[in-house]
């Protein structure tokens, strides 16, 4: 990479928090509406997000550009690292290795997930209201469901452990005690956010998302 690698690393680290960590929390909350209120609430939540002013600008500068920089530069960082957990099997070294492995998995997963959802909306294959149905079809496919569980766990781990590392890399948690307490907090965050995503994923398997899909199909055939 050309230019000052200190600034690139700092930018990579910052983008992981703002906006990407904020985005993953927003995403978890939006999905959770499917658990709380089923198909209708989920449609409303999707509608709310897409009703935000300048939504395309927010999406481009708040998600896509930071995501691409963080992902591509992250792959370069992963390439620069050795994995030596065999020789040094300490917890933090495992977290270091998993951060890189989960990063690569997340990169592939996000690419695939965006293709299945946002990209299909963009090319007009489905509407925002049909996202619940799309997720229903994915979540009821055993292979896709398994891959989604892996992808969700990898992304959430990468987010929680990345937050821990961000606090160290910016000199916010300095002492061993601060870093230890921080690791406990982010471990809890990992469990909670993963649980939210997994609950949403299983909620999408519910029949009401299928019925909504069937109703929409019916309307389509009439029209």
């Amino acid at each position: 990479m050309k230019g000052n690698s200190y600034l690139s690393r700092k930018l990579h680290s910052l983008l992981g928090v703002i906006p990407l960590s904020l985005f993953i929390i927003t995403h978890a909350l939006t999905n959770f509406s499917a658990v709380e209120g089923g198909s209708e609430r989920f449609k409303a939540a999707v509608g709310f997000i897409n009703g935000l002013p300048l939504v395309n600008v927010l999406e481009l500068f708040g998600i896509f550009i930071p995501l691409i920089f963080h992902g591509v530069y992250g792959l370069y960082i992963a390439y620069q690292s050795n994995l030596n957990t065999g020789q040094f099997s300490y917890g933090r070294n495992w977290a270091f290795a998993l951060q890189r492995i989960s990063g690569v998995i997340t990169f592939i997963f996000v690419f695939w997930h965006v293709y299945q959802t946002r990209f299909q909306v963009a090319i007009g294959g489905i509407t925002h209201d049909q996202l619940g149905m799309t997720m229903h079809n994915i979540a009821t496919n055993p292979l896709f469901f398994t891959l989604y569980v892996i992808g969700v766990l990898a992304s959430t781990f990468h987010f929680a452990n990345g937050m821990w590392a961000f606090l160290v890399s910016w000199g916010i948690t300095v002492s061993p005690r601060a870093q230890r307490v921080s690791s406990y907090i982010w471990m809890v965050v990992f469990v909670l956010v993963s649980a939210m995503f997994l609950m949403s994923l299983s909620a999408f398997r519910g029949d009401e998302f299928k019925e909504a899909a069937a109703a929409l199909d019916a309307i389509r055939t009439i029209v």
């Binding site: 000052n4 690698s5 200190y6 700092k10 960082i77 620069q80 030596n84 300490y90 821990w164 160290v168």
Partner: peptide
């Protein structure tokens, strides 16, 4: 010096 290339930026917090 640590903020230039080949400085502190390469630390990945493995803490080995």
């Amino acid at each position: 010096t640590l903020m230039s290339d080949g400085g502190i930026e390469g630390c990945g917090n493995s803490q080995n």
